[in-house]
Each structure stands twice: as structure tokens, then as C-alpha cells.
Amino acid sequence: MFFANPFKLKKLGVLGMNKRNVYCIGEHNSRKQYPMVDNKLKTKVVAQEVNIAVPELLGTVRMQSDVRNIEKILEGLNGFVIKPAQGSGGKGILVIVDRKDNFFFKPSGEHVTFRDIRQHISNILSGLYSLGGKPDVAMIEQLVQFDPIFDKYSFEGVPDIRIILYKGFPAMAMLRCSTKESDGKANLHQGAVGVGIDMATGKALYAVQHNHPIDKHPDTGYDFSALQIPHWKEMLRLSARCYDMTHLGYLGVDIVLDKYLGPLILELNARPGLAIQIANKTGILTRFDMIDTTTLNKSVEERVAYSIKYFSGTNHDKTKTIK
């Protein structure tokens, strides 16, 4: 058989795109809250107000005429990230890891000049990367000093942890590791590896690339089974607090791990994708259904404890019997 049996998928609780759009996003995410999530600048401001850890904002460029002053903003900075405030799908993010005089080095070792950076910012401002081509703002933020624990599992890029929250409960998580093929980006459809994470322990469960299971990172060759995410409980807590900040019932939280600062919220997503299910080899709807049956209005700690207790492993039948 070429196709999966839809009834079997339904039984496994696999969430499809239409159901995500109609029920998860349509029913649980209020339009009013979108700007706070879609605009990374707003997210950052609100997150800082409630003491949620985020990478530090170094500066913003709001107008084309300010693009000339970029030398001033970048003075003395060796590593930074330039991103559009309203970008989507990781588009338009320029990562600079090192600098020698007027040459800036990308993680791949390629260098860019002030001219390239100005062009990039100018593109951001004119809305090239934003949804619908709206004029945008360029944010310059601190480069995250990645915890070396992930070095073995990432090629040239930013490994980040995606946690999906349903009504404030962390429901599923994955680690996204960039590969040579994904050009340092953590997007699964571009060839990054998705690693399903055990909600109780932060240990790797299962890894996929292009929807196919793999054991080792295709570029570094390290086995994923040894992977254990540090500060796991802290990350769950951080993500659950994002729900209290946004009140989005279906929310994706992207977390990075800084060597010195610990887990930081990189961005929030009001329309998180479905690939996380493949990386966990688990349908997410069964977990949503379980959350629907619990009493809501629990505190952050209670919600995290619930997820740790019930959402461990991939096997749903097991979790069901516990309940």
C-alpha cells in the first residue's frame, strides 16, 4: 500500500492539516492574540515583562533611512542575529557568528560585508519575508551561545526545541537539528532532523529525516539514542508560562539552550506544524483528548506535572491505562 489507511491514522490520533486549521487553530486561538505571537518584537517585549528568558535585543531598524546607521549598531558586536519581526518559517534570518574587521562570518564559514547586511535589512523592511509582504521591522539580537551538548547533533546551525502546548499543557516536544542538507536551518521539510522527546525525561525517543526514521545524525554520525536534553523540566515550565502570556490554546514554543543563560524562548508560533507527530511517532490528538478531560485552570507546575506523568514515551495505550 502506498497510502496510509485514514481510519488507522484516526485511531492513532494523528492530527491532520484540516483538523488543525478548523479545530486547533480556529477554535482555540483567538485572532486578537496573533500579533503578539507573529511579531517577534512584541513577543520579546511581553516576555521580558513577565520575566520569561529571551535572547537579548541589541537593536531594531525600522526605516530604510536607518539602514545607513547599521555600522553604529553593529559596532563591537562579534556575534548577532538579524531577523524580521514578522517573518515566517525561519525566512530572512541572518546569523553572524564571527567578525574580522568588516567581514562577517556565517555559521557555514561564508563571509558577508556591510553591503550584504544592509541589503538584507532593507529586504526585511520592505516586507520580503513577512506574511503578505507587509512592511516589517528588522531585529538585531544577541547570538545565542549554544550549549556544546548539542554540537554532536547539529550541523552548522541552531538546534532548537519545539514544544506544542494544548490549553497550556505541554503536549509534545521535539528537538530540531540542522543538517548539511537543510543549510543550517531547523526546518524539517528542508531536510533537518526531528527528534521526538520523552515528555517525562527529556530523552530522545525517535529521530526522523524527511519522514523516514534514522538512528544517527547524517552529517556528524552521532547516535541519537544517547541524547538527553538538559534543563528539561525548566523548559517545560518555560513553555507552560508562555500559555499564560498568550492564552493561545494551540501554541508552539521554540526554545534554545544557551551555554550561560540556560533555556531561552526564541519564538512562539500560533500555527505550529504537524511534523512533530512523525518525530514522536505518536498522534497528538490522543494527548489533546486527555487534556480535554482534565480540569483546566491549573497552575504552571500542575500542568507540567500532568504532562510528565501522562505523556511519557510513544506508546499511547500505556498512558491510557495509567489514566
Binding site: F2, N5, N18, V22, Y23, L274, G283
Partner: peptide, 19 residues
């Protein structure tokens, strides 16, 4: 159709690994 919440044909391919 706007309320259809079943799987798309392409998703049956995408989620093949589940079955």
C-alpha cells in the same frame, strides 16, 4: 468543505510511517 476536518490525500502519504 471549509469544515472538513479529515485527512488530506497527501497526508496519507506523509503519515505513512505511522501505519
Amino acid at each position: 468543505m471549509g469544515r472538513y476536518s479529515g485527512y488530506r490525500l497527501t497526508e496519507l502519504l506523509r503519515f505513512k510511517s505511522f501505519t
